Each structure stands twice: as structure tokens, then as C-alpha cells.
Amino acid sequence: MRKLSAFNPECQAESVSSKALVALERVSQAFRVMLWNEGKLYGLSPIQIQLLTFLLHFPEEKRTVTFLAGFFNMTKATISDAVKALESKSYLTRKVVATDSRSSSLHLTREGKAIARKVEKFADPLHNIIDQLPGKEQGLLLEQLQQVIQQLSSEQILSVQSMCLNCVHYFKKKGHYCNAFKTSLTNAELRFECELFESGF
């Protein structure tokens, strides 16, 4: 007998995993809606908003088209088009990398930083909802989401994400443990974008 699709309500009634999958789909829809709504206010596409937000917070060595393509799981051509659009709006400039004249790092202009600080608030409604959960539930949610993301990375659906569960320093030892910091971690202490991250893949 053919397995019912997770998107079939009959299947959802009998399967917790199917209901969880649909819940994640609804959250991804919320992200798209929030990005599009913010974009309409400022004449920006969703990826342009995400690039502005990234460039506002990440160090120069990660602000290249190649890194951004991997980070956002998009082609270099798609990222390049978004970068050109932001350049045309005078929101960013390029600077040749000293060690590689073929590569450029991306830098927000004053206007770019100002618009980035505005549009990065696009996800505040969802952030506020999560923030209202009890601390223990927030930590459990974080752990479970990292487990899902780790599996997506291992199956090469997502690029390897810089987070504890993908790190060579991480291992399970009656809970979470970091060899780099030589300490146990609670669920709430699991990190994304740790400065000591080294891929375990």
C-alpha cells in the first residue's frame, strides 16, 4: 500500500512526524511572508534583505560572493545579481581582497548600514513568539532544530552549517560537550556561528 503524503490530512491525523513537517512548512511560509512584506516597504527582494542583514554582522573574510552562495545555498550567479542590485542602490561597495586580486569583499555604505538596521527586524514577530516560551522549552526547541539541520547537512540538502552539532569539537557525553571550551553545554548554550567552529563533515 502506497504511503500517504505528509501533506495529506489523513496521514497527518495518524503521524506526529507528518504534523511536525507541516508545522515547519508553515514557519517557512511565515519567513517568506515577513521577508516579502519588509521588501515591499523598501523596494528590496528577500535575498537582498538577507544579504544586508548578513553584511551588517559578519566579518570581512565571510563577506564574499563565494561564501554567501554557500551560506544561503544559492548559486554564485543569484548572489551576484543581488549584490549588483544593492550596488546600484548605493548600499554596498566592493573591495579587492589583498591576498587574491580575483576576489572582492563586500562592504555596506553608510546608507547600506542604515537600511540593514531597519530591514533586519523583519523576523521580530517570530522572534517575540519564541522569546515568550519558557527557557527550558526554548533550549529544547533549539536542540531539536539543530538536530534537523545537522541531518539536512549530512544529506547535502543544506550546506554545512556552523553550529555545535556539526562541529568537530562537539560530542555527546551525557548531554552536549565541547572539547574546544572543555565544558558541558545545556541545550540553551548550543551555538550557531561559533568562532571556534571546525566542520566535522
Score class of each variant (00 low, 15 high):
50 Q>P: 00
27 V>Y: 13
89 K>F: 07
71 F>L: 12
63 R>K: 15
48 Q>K: 00
78 T>N: 08
47 I>V: 07
70 G>Q: 10
69 A>H: 03
48 Q>P: 02
53 T>D: 07
67 F>C: 04
44 L>M: 02
69 A>R: 00
76 K>L: 05
52 L>F: 09
58 F>G: 06
44 L>P: 00
38 E>R: 10
49 I>K: 02
27 V>E: 13
69 A>D: 00
66 T>A: 10
85 A>G: 09
54 F>D: 06
65 V>M: 09
65 V>F: 06
63 R>S: 15
56 L>I: 03
53 T>Q: 06
57 H>M: 14
82 A>P: 05
87 E>P: 04
56 L>Y: 06
75 T>F: 00
30 A>W: 00
38 E>K: 12
62 K>T: 15
31 F>I: 01
54 F>S: 10
32 R>W: 06
59 P>C: 14
51 L>I: 15
55 L>K: 04
77 A>P: 03
26 R>L: 13
29 Q>C: 11
80 S>N: 11
26 R>A: 10
58 F>V: 11
50 Q>E: 09
83 V>G: 02
59 P>Q: 13
42 Y>L: 06
69 A>Q: 00
90 S>L: 12
53 T>H: 06
57 H>W: 14
49 I>Q: 02
43 G>S: 11
90 S>T: 11
80 S>I: 04
33 V>W: 00
86 L>T: 04
45 S>H: 04
58 F>E: 12
31 F>Q: 02
30 A>C: 08
29 Q>A: 11
42 Y>T: 07
52 L>I: 10
45 S>T: 12
55 L>G: 02
30 A>H: 01
90 S>E: 14
85 A>K: 11
86 L>K: 01
81 D>T: 15
45 S>F: 04
53 T>W: 02
37 N>L: 07
86 L>C: 05
41 L>T: 12
81 D>Q: 15
81 D>W: 12
75 T>Q: 03
31 F>V: 03
49 I>S: 02
77 A>E: 13
63 R>Q: 15
69 A>E: 00
82 A>N: 07
45 S>L: 08
41 L>G: 06
90 S>K: 14
81 D>A: 15
42 Y>V: 06
37 N>F: 05
57 H>Y: 13
34 M>E: 12
68 L>V: 10
53 T>Y: 05
33 V>N: 01
79 I>R: 04
62 K>A: 13
57 H>I: 11
57 H>C: 09
57 H>A: 14
56 L>W: 02
62 K>R: 15
40 K>Q: 11
74 M>T: 08
88 S>D: 15
39 G>I: 01
84 K>E: 14
57 H>T: 15
61 E>V: 12
67 F>Y: 13
60 E>R: 14
86 L>M: 06
78 T>W: 03
65 V>S: 11
48 Q>Y: 01
